[in-house]
Design a protein around this nucleic acid. Sequence first.
DNA 1: GTGGTCTAGACCACC
DNA 2: GTGGTCTAGACCACA
Lengths: 131, 131, 131, 131
Amino acid sequence: MFTKIDMTSDTPIYQQLMENIIRGIAKQELTPGTQLPSVRTLADELEVNMHTVAKAYTLLKDKGFLSVHRNKGAVVNPQSKFAADSVYLDDLRKQLLVYATEAACRGVKAGEWISVCNDAYEELSRSSDFM
Amino acid sequence: MFTKIDMTSDTPIYQQLMENIIRGIAKQELTPGTQLPSVRTLADELEVNMHTVAKAYTLLKDKGFLSVHRNKGAVVNPQSKFAADSVYLDDLRKQLLVYATEAACRGVKAGEWISVCNDAYEELSRSSDFM
Amino acid sequence: MFTKIDMTSDTPIYQQLMENIIRGIAKQELTPGTQLPSVRTLADELEVNMHTVAKAYTLLKDKGFLSVHRNKGAVVNPQSKFAADSVYLDDLRKQLLVYATEAACRGVKAGEWISVCNDAYEELSRSSDFM
Amino acid sequence: MFTKIDMTSDTPIYQQLMENIIRGIAKQELTPGTQLPSVRTLADELEVNMHTVAKAYTLLKDKGFLSVHRNKGAVVNPQSKFAADSVYLDDLRKQLLVYATEAACRGVKAGEWISVCNDAYEELSRSSDFM
DNA sequence: GTGGTCTAGACCACC
DNA sequence: GTGGTCTAGACCACA
């Protein structure tokens, strides 16, 4: 777990870490109530700096995915805390628009676009019992 | 045209510029053979640095969208030069996976996901005679 | 009573506990002479550390709300012991200034500000027979 | 300007700095469009660390008070960006409730409470032409 | 030159 | 032992 950090990538480490944790939640490997390793422990394990892990945790807390308990570290929130709302869906659509534009530009038709989107969503559920 | 640069955004200017040009091509406002303004001209118009425009042009050239002729500035390529290939589609799916993961995590079901993807694609064709 | 501790909040537990007890006094659920549970008992009930409860009690003693007798636990003081004096009112005004500043900055006019302050005070008396 | 950092205070430096800047906006010493010193410059001036200033700027950006331009540093937003909304007013009332409770508890009557709140708001406009 | 990211090591509040 | 804050110094992307 948590070992997929690519130090050569140009996406920041704290962001990769966020994506990893979100993936964990999506795949239900991290269920609500699950306690995450302390910033120091995880930092050691991943061989990155403490503050980098702390930043990821803090941002995930701000996004509603985690709660940071005083003395017990970070814990996964119940899904109600970060359920999709209209603001999120709007942002999402806006970001997808960028990709859709380039795709259309390259001659990808509506059907193919949907097909790729569908593939991406389904790839998620592979390699896990996530529904 | 070309005036939608948001200096306060945290997406780099050169990237916003790339997205703008790609949108122009997608909407067929920029057709193959169209000559783009010179680096200097566009930089003046947008009130950004010359190097920023140059960087956008170069990256678009690398992606196959433009040809940069030595003394004639940048010209939009025929679509065959940047038609979607399997490499591109793979990359696309990988990038969409990140968004799909967070969406699923937030309780967005497959149907809603497709719906949002579809909306994004259709938003494209609004406000223009594209497609 | 005493059960409103939010472990995920970023206000320290001992402070939440202090606020709870002060609220109890304000609502006259805790009247002068009332004996509070022992440190150990309350800590067990709230599932927090003994030292945390002790800290809250000590700070409330320093503020004049409680008397801590050696072997009899904590007892609520008569109001004369913690009646508002000019020092307290000065501190209060200074703290409110911070909130007033941000409010004014956000365009909240004097009337609205007073209205919110008034609401806060009145909210207090709801849900109890206080005042 | 910006020199009121109290290194002995137990409120974090970045927070004091935030309050200072908000006060500046409230007093209209910092008007929309005003450019703030760069993180390095301000850090030198205040004799604090660069990152501490950066944190204050980032949080103020998140709150809507500032925009951080790529190459020009932080700029004060137009008030529309951070005008009070119902969410803010709710939070405000909740925070004031804590103070109102202790005040009531100490025997401060509604009239005195409002009077103190009023004083705090008016103190703002003293020592400046802010209305 | 600007902010963003990362590292490293220290101290403190909280529990 | 936990996270939060601060310092210090480095590198990089962006402009």
